[in-house]
Design a protein around this nucleic acid. Structure first.
Lengths: 416, 416
DNA sequence: GGTGTTTGTCAGGGCTCTCAACAAATTAGT
DNA sequence: ACTAATTTGTTGAGAGCCCTGACAAACACC
């Protein structure tokens, strides 16, 4: 309710409400309270969420039965009266598996219900241009390996997401519409995944990175724009704490915002797009470095240092062309973000992905541009911040998605 | 569910759910079905929404008791079996009052629960620069008059909204933060409204216009950007059928999008803002017409023809400077809307307010610019359309807001 | 006029919450 | 050490709401 719906009311979610829905929601509310406010007794929960102790007791029993909550051994003491039995979110049992296919690596991560990453795996792989089936088979093998490892830790994977640097349409179906940097087009995961029982759900990596940032470091109900530069320049919009994908799933296409209407022609057909100034290729060129990851199909020379690290290194060393290139990119980015701020009025802007590692050199010029151009509303320089997760965001977000789904609907877990 | 939340689940609306919530939602679902699908019997409703006939019977009884629904006299015949008793949304009883304060007029409108405008009143008044108290007193008088008239029609006003051309903060409190074209700043409605029992809730007119457009002509759950040029150039964002106001209520500030980063200086302090190309003053100047509504405090010469009508007249007559000015404005608007499309990925773009009346001459250049620049996603020229309500939108939206609130929560009505 | 079909209502039952009462477990006081 | 006070978790009764199944009412068709 921060931003949406002061004029309109909510409710009327189109379907009729049943008692199961009520139960579902109350289970989620209790679980949410336990997750957010540390160890809590049933009475504590009742007091905070506004249910009676009797109701909370019944709900907690069910949550324990489903393996979402456990009674901690240590009972809180020190206060007068009978001590309550401390409840915590279970760190065994249900878990989320995240997989990631990057241009030069595969990743896998398992988090428990508390959201803690318990397994983290990253292997370098030149995925660009290789057949999708081969890449997916390797990802599946990595996933199976990690799932076995999770089993040994007492974790049972309850959902699987795959972060991909590409376009994933809104409608379900496990389709990756296209992933230019991988050379994929119209890849349906189920067609290539070895084990039909463990096919993950694909999602755009920038979206997952933004969600991870929100879940890890965001304020409740926050509205922010998360910019990352992996597949071109993408922005993910988190509105009132929920990902906004647009009518067709194309929201946040920041890379082709017209920054200078008569600027250089872009591959997209328009002129003066942001990517011409702040895209990886443009920055590398301006900094006097060779382009690195050629588009799909080309040579997949995944050299030792990745270009972002190289840029950061040179910038730190005071290399003038690099500094100029980053300043120019920052100013263009600030111009594009001015449009985003004017339109969306977000609480914050987050520079994620590769930008997070270059934040030291990008932030000043982005901030300057925003300060000069966002004038008709309050705007604080601190609202622009680098991501705390950086390039770890997408993988973490993939694993956490399952966890958050369970938190929002504990009945997804099988009853004990 | 069109756009938001494929990755995240819903539920967990923070508060615990009660049986009253369930009842509330089911009342809304039944009422919504009756409103959307014409006269319906209880059995029809049950079949469509997925409740049992017994439950629907009980819900309908309550809706009748609250005056939201009536049993029509005519029973549907022709089919085999006992004929159902037709239910319709009540066209007497609960009603919504909308008031509007414009720069040169006051407006009032009453709609019944079906959403039909039953009373429509507009009086010319030079409001710019006059003391807020005086203007509000006149608006209150107009409102009282219209309410009495509604009473005579058997309508009872259940809620009051006031459309203002200004900034209304997100948080409740009846505050109009500033309305430059009226010369208002920090006006709290309750301080000036004669009758404390009928103080309306203020809302930005562009937002209300967008909602009216959605409620009248939109597809369900639609996401669109509604552009209007009254207070500067404002865009209202309707996301999944709900108004999005931004973190602080400043979302949709289209007028100061940087269209040409090094363009002419704008009053806001930045350069090359859209208003410098497509704002009323800029267009009038480019068309060789004198500026009309000077800012607050200046002479309030509300001449016979308003400038928009004059522009339309000259354009229709083929006046070359006017046509050039509109083409230039359209291209700048298209450039700004490219950013909006890239970021939001809306289903549609609606030109409302004054733009609707100039659509014939604006649309081609806006469309051309969008076609040339929106290239990385599907984009259909028809997605850009003129508003069907035009300048009637805000007032209608103000009245309909109350109606939609009741539809979303019929328990707002006193029980019979 | 009889039969079949559909409608609206009623009684019984299940689910989920609230309320009130109570036993259990601990601290504070004497 | 013992009692009083306090807080917790559980239990049973009760209310609200929906579902199931049955039934009378009202119509079309033959």
């Amino acid at each position: 309710m921060t931003a949406v719906g002061r004029v309109e009311s909510r409710s009327a979610e189109h379907g009729p409400a049943s008692q199961q829905d009520m139960r579902r929601q109350n289970l989620a509310v209790v679980l949410g309270a336990v997750a957010a406010q540390g160890p809590l007794s049933r009475a504590d929960v009742a007091g905070r969420v506004g249910l009676t102790r009797a109701a909370v007791s019944s709900l907690v029993d069910e949550l324990i039965g489903r393996g979402a909550v456990t009674e901690a051994a240590a009972t809180a003491r020190g206060r007068v009266g009978r001590p309550g039995r401390a409840l915590t979110v279970c760190d065994e049992g249900p878990a989320g598996l995240g997989l990631e296919i990057g241009v030069t690596h595969l990743g896998a991560c398992v988090t428990d219900l508390r959201g803690e990453p318990r397994i983290w795996r990253r292997v370098e792989r030149p995925n660009a241009g290789r057949p999708a089936g081969r890449v997916l088979a390797e990802a599946a093998a990595l996933g199976a390996e990690v799932e076995a490892e999770a089993e040994a830790l007492g974790l049972r994977v309850a959902g699987r997401l795959l972060a991909v640097p590409g376009v994933v349409p809104n409608r379900p179906g496990g389709l990756v519409e296209r992933a230019p940097n991988l050379g994929w087009s119209g890849v349906r995961l189920a067609d290539h995944w070895p084990d039909p029982g463990t096919v993950p759900e694909p999602e755009n990596e920038a979206n997952l990175g933004a969600l991870a940032e929100y879940w890890n470091a965001g304020r409740p109900e926050e509205t922010f724009v998360h910019v990352s530069a992996e597949t071109g320049i993408g922005a993910a919009l988190v509105i009132d704490g929920r990902l906004f994908r647009g009518a067709r799933g194309f929201a946040g296409e920041l890379g082709h915002l017209p920054v200078r209407p008569d600027g250089p022609a872009c591959a997209c057909g328009a002129r003066g797009c942001l990517e011409q100034y702040a895209g990886e290729a443009a920055v590398l060129r301006a900094a006097g470095l060779p382009p690195h990851c050629s588009p799909a199909g080309g040579p997949t020379g995944t050299g030792p240092g990745d270009p972002v690290a190289l840029l950061a290194e040179r910038a730190a060393a005071g290399h003038a062309p690099t500094l100029r290139a980053l300043d120019r990119a920052g100013r263009a980015l600030g111009l594009a973000l001015t449009s985003a701020v004017d339109l969306i009025d977000p609480d914050g802007l987050v520079l994620g992905g590769a930008y997070a590692e270059l934040a030291d050199w990008l932030l000043p010029s982005v901030r300057a541009e925003l300060a000069a151009r966002v004038t008709v509303r309050p705007w604080a320089a601190e609202a622009l911040r680098p991501s705390v997760l950086g390039r770890r965001g997408p993988l973490l977000g993939a694993a956490l998605t399952t966890v958050r789904r369970i938190m929002a609907d504990p009945t997804l877990l099988p009853a004990g």
